[in-house]
């Protein structure tokens, strides 16, 4: 009976609410069953090509047939254990930075510092490993490499840029202002073009920077400039008293920023930082304009195969689900962080 009361109070409390409820239920009832039919019940899961998909539902066979490409691009099969190792170690490389109650966090923090170098070594190859040129990378591998790489490497840069912009030393603040304003003034696509097309022409012949690395550099400086402005917003929001109190205690510039200002400023900028991070993660699909096949590019390439053409909806649904998993993960993490830091704050105030 409780639930009956709940329904009456929340859904049928007035005439207008009742009508809206009924209309919405009607819409959901007419949309959801066919959607589920298409997605699951009438879908074809295994087929050799699109002509094997005779049912009315989705043709998920394309995802199965192309799963390798979606995950690794054209990475050679005999070397793919390296990518799998990178994927498997990803939680250990990132969690210690994100989760302060992780068991053995101290030891893992050391690993987290080693991890990016390990990633480069494993993916590109080096002493003892066959080199794999980055034109073989693709799919989720490329999306994560550019997205996470961009977000993680750009974060410290954006803090330095934000501090630099507020610096009282004119040269430093001028450089930071010019850098931030210039980078923010151009679209990411322009930076990608510049990185991939113009840069090689300035470099001496023979010195060849890898295409994916050039894209990564473009992504990092873009994200650093945007992140810097977010962090600066947090710094501006700090009351002057915090600075003065820190200086009165005789703290140096770095002590003041590291111990007093940044912990508070970064806390209030979490939602905005995560927002730009999510934006960047999705923007990485722009690399298709410089001919790199990320998750979306690999999907489009699959559609260009006469074996699988015209299955646009299936491919795009699959890609959106993967992007959703990551972006939803980011936003849940930011909620967790806010909650954790807020409770700390409240208890201090009490």
């Amino acid at each position: 009976m409780l639930s009956f009361n709940w329904i009456r109070q929340n859904l049928f409390s007035s005439w207008t609410n009742s009508i809206i409820t009924v209309v919405l239920i009607y819409f959901l009832a007419s949309i959801i069953p066919p959607m589920f039919d298409w997605l699951f019940f009438e879908a074809t899961w295994i087929a050799d090509d699109r002509t094997g998909c005779t049912s009315d539902g989705a043709c998920w066979a394309i995802i199965g047939a192309r799963f390798y490409q979606f995950m690794y691009g054209f990475y050679p099969t005999e070397e793919v254990w390296r990518v799998n190792l990178v994927y498997a170690l990803l939680p250990f490389g990132i969690l210690p930075l994100l989760w302060d109650k992780m068991p053995f966090r101290k030891q893992f923090l050391i690993f987290a510092i080693v991890y990016p170098f390990l990633v480069f070594f494993l993916l590109y190859g080096g002493p003892g490993l066959t080199a794999v040129a980055s034109n073989k990378w693709g799919g989720l591998l490329l999306t994560l490499f550019l997205g996470l790489g961009g977000i993680i490497i750009a974060f410290p840069l954006s803090i330095f840029l934000a501090l630099g912009r507020r610096s009282e030393m004119p040269a430093i603040s001028a450089i930071c202002v010019v850098f931030i304003e210039f980078i923010r003034g151009v679209p990411l696509i322009t930076l990608l073009f510049f990185g991939s097309m113009m840069l090689p022409l300035f470099l001496p012949e023979g010195l060849d920077i890898d295409t994916v690395l050039r894209a990564l550099v473009a992504v990092i400086i873009f994200q650093a400039a945007y992140g810097a402005e977010v962090v600066r917003g947090g710094l501006q929001a700090m009351p002057k008293g915090q600075y003065e109190a820190a200086q009165a205690l005789g703290l140096s510039y770095w002590q003041m920023n590291l111990k007093i200002i940044l912990p508070q400023a970064l806390k209030i900028t979490i939602p905005a930082l995560v927002n730009t991070a999510i934006g960047l993660f999705k923007d990485t699909s722009l690399v298709i304009v410089i001919g790199l096949l990320d998750l979306l590019g690999i999907g489009r390439a699959a559609l260009a195969d006469t074996k699988w053409m015209a299955l646009h909806v299936e491919v795009y649904v699959f890609i959106s689900v993967i992007f959703f998993i990551f972006c939803f993960g980011f936003s849940r993490y930011s909620l967790y962080l806010e909650k954790k830091l807020n409770t700390d704050n409240d208890s201090e105030n009490k």
């Binding site: 047939a65 054209f74 298709i288 489009r300 699959a302 195969d305 006469t306």
Partner: peptide
């Protein structure tokens, strides 16, 4: 080649 154009250039299932 192109990033994928029906009939003119595309990767097959094995890449």
């Amino acid at each position: 080649v192109t990033t994928g154009l029906l009939g003119f250039a595309a990767p097959d299932d094995s890449g």
